[in-house]
Structure formats: structure tokens, C-alpha cells
């Protein structure tokens, strides 16, 4: 797997997709993140920004400053050298409230998985998730590493906009949202955390490739943390990795 050369796909004349695979796979994602870190460190003039996803790295560039061949040559020079571990990743403990008023689909998830609601929460909080990518909206996190028992299909039809900062489950993923929007996933809980806030200097505190775990909090704790997060504080804790 690690030896397969990436494919180079043009997304117009100003973006190049370096594709390592077509599936969701931690090893593929590792290669994406390693290339992202190494390529970014080159600080090539004309490279506008890079976007890591599950399986590919999109490189946005100005072709009047750096041409396609030079972008590919830079990627190939990095791929030819053994992958050194990328920037150290952090592990985050994210508070999440599973009380019914914040977890409207918990009962349904329990029915689908034939588990008790307590067991669903225990499994959801027991797992260590990897941040595969952001997408959809600022701070919207795609997390992989959902326990097998909690793999359920998504809704057949999307539901109307959900509240802000809810935690979703479905299709083998769990997700932390920021904005209110319609969704095809199930609402398993709500976090007081803001994965994106303009009130903080670090608008986004979790990096792609970081790991995180949910810590259950009761409704009263949720209310306290929610007020602090709203005021611009990060209420999650960074744990030893």
C-alpha cells in the first residue's frame, strides 16, 4: 500500500489533486497528512494553500508563479524520501452531553444497534477518533474510528436544520458540527465546544490528524461549559497522547 505511487489529477489549471487512494483508510490518510506537512514546509512560492482530505491532498497554486510540473516534481521529491513523522499530533477530550434533550436520536440509535442507550454512550465515549478532515462548514469535523457496534446507515431523507454544535453519527463516521444545517446523519449528542469561533485567536484548535475522545457531561455541566465556550474559551482539554 505505502509503495503505490500517487495519481496526479488536474482540478483546472490552478489545483492539483495528489490522490493516494479512493477509500477511507487510516494508512492512506497518514500518507496524505505526511505529504501535507512536508509539502507545506517547503513554502514554495506560488502555492496558495493545501487541503488534506481522507485520501488525497489538493494543492491550490498560481500557475503563473509555479507551473504544474514544478508542483509535481516537489511532491515526487518528497515521496522519494522515507516518510518522517509529521508534526506531532494532539489528543483532545471534547465534552459531549448525551441527555435526551441534546441527543434526540439516541433512542433510535439504540434500537438500530440493539444496544441499551447506556451502552451506546459508553461505546461512543470509549473510542479514540481520528480527525480525517474538515469540510461542509468551518469547524465541521469528520471523525473516523467508530466502534463496529455503532456502525449504522444514515437517514433515508435529511432532517431539517439541527441545533449548533451537535455530534452526529452514521455511515461509519461520527461528526462534530458547528452551524445549524439540514443533515442526513443521526443526532447522538451535543457538545458545548465551538470547533470554530471568531471570538478566539485560535479560530480552529483541532488539527487534521489529531485524535479526540468524547467525555460525557450532564445537562448542568453542559450549560456552564456552553456559556464559557460562547464567550470565546476552549472548553476541551488537551490530553497526553
Amino acid at each position: 500500500m505505502a509503495d503505490i505511487a500517487p495519481r496526479y489529477l488536474d482540478a483546472g489549471e490552478t489545483a492539483l489533486v495528489v490522490e493516494f487512494g479512493t477509500t477511507v483508510d487510516p494508512q492512506i490518510n497518514d500518507r496524505v497528512l505526511a505529504l501535507d506537512a512536508a509539502f507545506t514546509a517547503l513554502k514554495l512560492e506560488g502555492v496558495r494553500e493545501t487541503v488534506p482530505t481522507y485520501r488525497s491532498l489538493m494543492i491550490h497554486y498560481d500557475p503563473l508563479v509555479i507551473d504544474r510540473a514544478a508542483v509535481i516534481a516537489a511532491v515526487e521529491s518528497l515521496e522519494a524520501t522515507p516518510v518522517t513523522s509529521s508534526a506531532p499530533k494532539s489528543h483532545w477530550l471534547i465534552p459531549c452531553c448525551y441527555a435526551h434533550e441534546y441527543a434526540e436520536d439516541l433512542t433510535h440509535i439504540a434500537e438500530m444497534t440493539k444496544l441499551s442507550e447506556e451502552r451506546v454512550v459508553e461505546l461512543h465515549t470509549g473510542a479514540r477518533y481520528r480527525v480525517y478532515m474538515y469540510g461542509f462548514a468551518p469547524g465541521f469535523c469528520y471523525l473516523g474510528g467508530v466502534p463496529k457496534e455503532l456502525i449504522v446507515s444514515r437517514r433515508e431523507t435529511p432532517r431539517p436544520p439541527h441545533p449548533t454544535n451537535v455530534v452526529l453519527l452514521g455511515g461509519g463516521l461520527t461528526l462534530i458540527t458547528t452551524f445549524s444545517m439540514p443533515t442526513g446523519w443521526w443526532l447522538i449528542g451535543r457538545s458545548p465546544e465551538r470547533m470554530f469561533s471568531l471570538k478566539r485567536e485560535n479560530n480552529f484548535f483541532v488539527g487534521v490528524g489529531d485524535t479526540l475522545q468524547f467525555v460525557p457531561v450532564d445537562a448542568a455541566t453542559f450549560a456552564t461549559l456552553d456559556a464559557r465556550a460562547e464567550a470565546g474559551e476552549v472548553v476541551s482539554r488537551k490530553a497526553a497522547t
Binding site: 490552478t14 489533486v17 479512493t22
Partner: peptide, 26 residues
């Protein structure tokens, strides 16, 4: 499996009608 979208990318969803993604795209 989701990947990056450049401005001007033309997606073809299941209904077979193209969608050109513009400035405010995801």
C-alpha cells in the same frame, strides 16, 4: 470519498445534471 473542490469544478450527482461549483462552494 470526499476530496477537494476547486472553483469551477463541475460535479455530476446521481441525477446526471451538472453543477458548477462557484465562489461560495464548500
Amino acid at each position: 470519498v470526499s476530496d477537494g473542490i476547486a472553483m469551477g469544478a463541475i460535479q455530476v450527482p446521481g441525477v446526471g445534471q451538472p453543477v458548477v461549483l462557484m465562489a461560495d462552494r464548500q
